[in-house]
Amino acid sequence: MPDQNEMAPSKNRQEVEFRGGGFSPKPMAIIGPVVFVVIIALMEWGTRTGWITNLTLPRPSDVFKTFIELYQSGLLFEHLLPSLTRLAVGSVMGISAGIGLGVLIGLFTLIRAGLLPVVAAIFPIPKIALLPLFIIWFGIDEGSKYALIALGTFTPTVVSTYGAVDNVDRSLIRMGQSFGLSWFSIVRKIVLPGALPGILSGLRISLAIAIILLVAAEMLGASYGIGAYILEAGSLYDLERLFVGVSILSILGVTISWLIGRIERRLLNWRS
């Protein structure tokens, strides 16, 4: 017997196999830029060696040169400023209206029952299809572009906001009521901060849609703006300028997303 006892552990010795881990992506600041650099370097190398013809892709260094020329000619800001203004005005209108209505839909039975179907009906319409209508309503100038961007950001903001309001912990609202807080206090101090994470992540989608619509609107009727610049370059098959325009949009998108990230980190630092 004692023999067996001594033998048993040594015979069936086996290390416990690790089977946890994963499912928790962590931020890694360095990887993103590296991927960009690698892609651009590949394009540069490909176009230089002739492996990629100049008709397929422009050379990144030429694109960069074109960009510098655009900047030096002063035309960059003549295109960028109207675009940024349209983006800002349109999305501020759409997002603030969207948050307002989203909160109301989240809080009131009647408004929810009445307006949720309407929002659901508007949501899937490609807003760009309505541009002619907006031109009739708001004029060919800025008005129609603001309206288009506003409507485009409005619907996703409504949907993400009322979802976020729905997700606010009811026990916190109960607590507010139990301390005799007014309705307005409960909304301002409990519902809105509780819904903020959901609202902000909805904002990312809304603003990406805003950029897409901005370009579409400018392509259909504007003499200045990133969209107009891209359209002109495209019709001349000027790939360098086309890529300059597209890169500006990309950078704009990344900047906005970074800004929202900053806002999230500031406002949501209470989350673990």
């Binding site: 109960r174 301390f179 807080l181 101090k189 409990i190 949501l268």
Partner: peptide, 21 residues
């Protein structure tokens, strides 16, 4: 039972919530 503290307010902020109105 679940404390019902506002996670975005500090300890004193949570107490002040009950007094602010």
């Amino acid at each position: 039972q679940d404390f019902a503290l506002l996670p975005w307010r500090t300890v004193s902020g949570n107490i002040s919530l009950a007094l602010e109105d």
